[in-house]
């Protein structure tokens, strides 16, 4: 079960990564990236690194996302 869940996480991570690459709408990409970060945090928790997981959740999913959204909102939303 553990293995299946982890495998699923990895697959999800990769598909999130690919989705970020494909999305032309920057805000959408940022949102997908936020969920990517959260998935990553969960993955690390499962790999036995709670310290890293908590930090990633706060930083990757939180601060980085906020920064990205701020930046997108101050520039332009679509990738030309």
């Amino acid at each position: 079960m553990h293995l299946v869940f982890s495998a699923l996480l990895v697959v999800l991570l990769v598909s999130c990564g690919l989705a970020v690459e494909r999305t032309r709408d920057l805000l959408g990409a940022v949102v997908i990236f936020a969920s990517y970060s959260l998935l990553m945090a969960i993955n690390w928790q499962m790999l036995g690194a709670p310290d890293v997981a908590i930090t990633e959740a706060a930083v990757g999913a939180g601060v980085t996302t906020l920064l990205l959204i701020g930046a997108v909102s101050r520039t332009r939303r679509r990738e030309e």
């Binding site: 991570l13 990564g17 970020v20 690459e21 920057l26 990409a29 940022v30 990236f33 990517y36 970060s37 990553m40 993955n43 690390w44 790999l47 036995g48 690194a49 890293v52 990633e56 990757g60 980085t64 990205l68 930046a71 997108v72 520039t75 990738e79 030309e80």
Partner: peptide, 28 residues
């Protein structure tokens, strides 16, 4: 490959987290 700077930054973040994942799984 992406010209957009913000996209580049997101790419950089993905790359970084991939390295971290690698390190974590090494420990595992």
């Amino acid at each position: 490959t992406h010209g957009n700077l913000i996209k580049k930054i997101i790419g950089m973040n993905i790359m970084d987290t991939a390295v971290f994942l690698f390190v974590v799984s090494l420990g595992y």
